[in-house]
């Protein structure tokens, strides 16, 4: 899983968010080091939605335009947990290796 996808899942892990909300949260989570573009975001959302990891939470009309909120599905959450464990294991290995030097 690439960083942008991981960040999107992570941004949705606490509560449903809309597109711009995900961008802001992802930027904050990565402390500004990763800045998602809108194209990347919706490309990833489509793939995640098709794979059943993310679903539509609700749709609101704001200023005459639709605003969709997305939430993590149970499958999405378990994918996020799995990926976090994988990343954690990798970081653990890296730390061990660096400590030996």
């Amino acid at each position: 899983m690439q960083d942008p996808t991981y960040l999107i899942l992570l941004a949705l892990s606490d509560r449903p968010r809309h597109g711009y909300g995900i961008l802001l949260e992802a930027s904050e989570l990565s402390r500004g080091t990763i800045r998602l573009g809108p194209g990347t975001l919706y490309g990833a959302l489509e793939r995640l939605e098709e794979a059943g990891h993310v679903e539509l939470d609700r749709e609101e009309i704001e200023e005459g335009r639709p605003r969709r909120y997305f939430r993590l599905t149970r499958r999405g959450r378990s994918l996020l947990v799995e990926e976090t464990e994988r990343r954690e294991a990798l970081v653990g290995l890296a730390k061990q290796r660096l400590a030996h030097r």
């Binding site: 597109g19 711009y20 809108p38 194209g39 919706y42 489509e46 335009r65 605003r67």
Partner: peptide, 10 residues
Amino acid sequence: RWEEELVRTT
């Protein structure tokens, strides 16, 4: 599926 959303967010 995504046009309006994408316009808005951009």
